[in-house]
């Protein structure tokens, strides 16, 4: 194997690997729906969070517009924040 052949194959390999990563990010993950539209934090208090977990989708009219960032217990009001 001479040098230029090795270089060629390594180049193909690295390109393919990066393409694979890109494929995963775009087609498989939610990079496509990654919008950088300005977002704002919403705080809400609940008596009981039920089965809610972090990263759960927040929907409006059935469309996902955000995710639950964090769930904390408010020590003063003894409610879930």
């Amino acid at each position: 194997m001479n040098r230029s052949a090795i270089d060629l194959w390594v180049g193909i390999f690295v390109a393919a690997g990066l393409a694979g990563l890109l494929f995963l990010a775009l087609k498989v993950g939610n990079l496509a729906s990654f919008n950088t539209a300005p977002a704002y934090q919403v705080y809400a208090k609940f008596a009981n969070i039920g089965g809610l977990k972090a990263r759960a989708p927040v929907k409006s009219a059935g469309v996902v517009i955000g995710r639950v960032a964090d769930i904390r217990f408010d020590n003063e009001s003894y409610e879930a924040l």
């Binding site: 990563l21 990010a25 087609k27 993950g29 939610n30 990079l31 990263r55």
Partner: peptide, 10 residues
């Protein structure tokens, strides 16, 4: 796409 998150999973 809805379930796989870039940052957390990939």
């Amino acid at each position: 796409q809805a379930a796989v998150d870039l940052r957390n999973d990939i």
